[in-house]
């Protein structure tokens, strides 16, 4: 059983909704990237999504675009990200880490080389935004190495395709709560609830919901039908510009602790 599977099994056993924060690796500070990961766990993260910066993040809104630009300006690349996961694993062997990003950095790094290095670093899964199921043959070396491929499902996904995605999902299925880019704010819990009912009929894997969740209230609303909630842009925005480890810690905790509490009170 993979680290991700174990984590979701434990959540289910304890009746809790998972909290998955997303941060862009190297933002706000490459020096404190590993510290930030530990802070996220201390503040209640069940799984960490670590964004690999990319110059052309087509599916992301301005907040994550700018975080990527800041990290790239500090020369953050895939090798740095893998190094931070390695360092994180020295103190945390339990919290799953999923790398989220776009295909080109992995393609240029080399699929086989990436697979080997990522597993060695302690990465558990990858979510490559611009690699839909149809193109995922290139990811075979990653699967062979034991990395789970996290798939997206969207409000626009046709019912027949949804069944296929649910059948292929590894680790968890990431349901994008609305048709749009990250960080936009039009969460409609009614629509999500309706679609989640359909997904539940097909999905064996747990389902996380992301896009548009910004605070304790929206997280709690989604927790009614999701196994986990993903929070990205709102956290990245809060962390932007924090200069030292203390400020990063204070801001991350102030943001996540109330959300964790709201999910646990659910």
């Amino acid at each position: 059983m993979s680290r991700i599977d174990r984590r979701f099994a434990a959540l289910k056993a304890s009746g809790r909704t998972g909290l998955i924060p997303f941060v862009t690796a190297g933002d706000p500070s490459p020096e404190h990237a590993v510290t930030l990961m530990h802070v996220l766990v201390d503040a209640g993260a069940d799984l960490i999504e670590l964004g690999v910066p990319f110059s052309d993040p087509m599916a992301d809104g301005p907040v994550i675009q700018h975080a990527s630009e800041r990290a790239i300006a500090k020369s953050v690349g895939l090798a740095d990200v893998l190094g931070w996961v390695t360092a994180f694993r020295q103190r945390d062997a339990e919290t799953p880490v999923v790398l989220m990003g776009y295909l080109n950095p992995v393609e240029i790094h080399g699929y086989a080389r990436f697979a080997q290095e990522a597993v060695q670093a302690g990465v558990d899964g990858v979510l490559l935004v611009d690699c839909p199921l149809e193109e995922s043959a290139v990811l075979q070396p990653l699967r062979d190495a034991g990395l789970q491929q996290i798939l997206l499902a969207a409000p626009t996904t046709e019912p027949s395709r949804m069944a296929q995605l649910c059948g292929s999902a590894e680790g968890f299925l990431y349901y994008v709560s609305f048709a749009g880019i990250t960080g936009a704010a039009h969460l409609s819990t009614g629509d999500i609830a309706a679609r989640m009912a359909d997904i539940r009929t097909h999905a064996k894997a747990p389902v996380a919901v992301g896009f548009g969740i910004r605070d304790a209230a929206s997280a709690r609303a989604i927790a009614d039908f999701a196994d986990a909630v993903v929070i990205g842009s709102a956290l990245v925005e809060r962390l932007a510009g924090a200069e030292d480890a203390e400020e990063i810690t204070v801001r991350a905790r102030a943001f996540l602790v109330p959300i964790r509490a709201a999910l646990d009170a659910h």
Partner: peptide, 22 residues
């Protein structure tokens, strides 16, 4: 049929765009 020219082309987009492209 999948938009591939040999090793090139294809459909490398986020899931949300798969249905509109289809």
């Amino acid at each position: 049929a999948h938009g591939r020219f040999g090793n090139y082309g294809g459909i490398y987009v986020a899931e949300t765009l798969m249905a509109p492209l289809a």
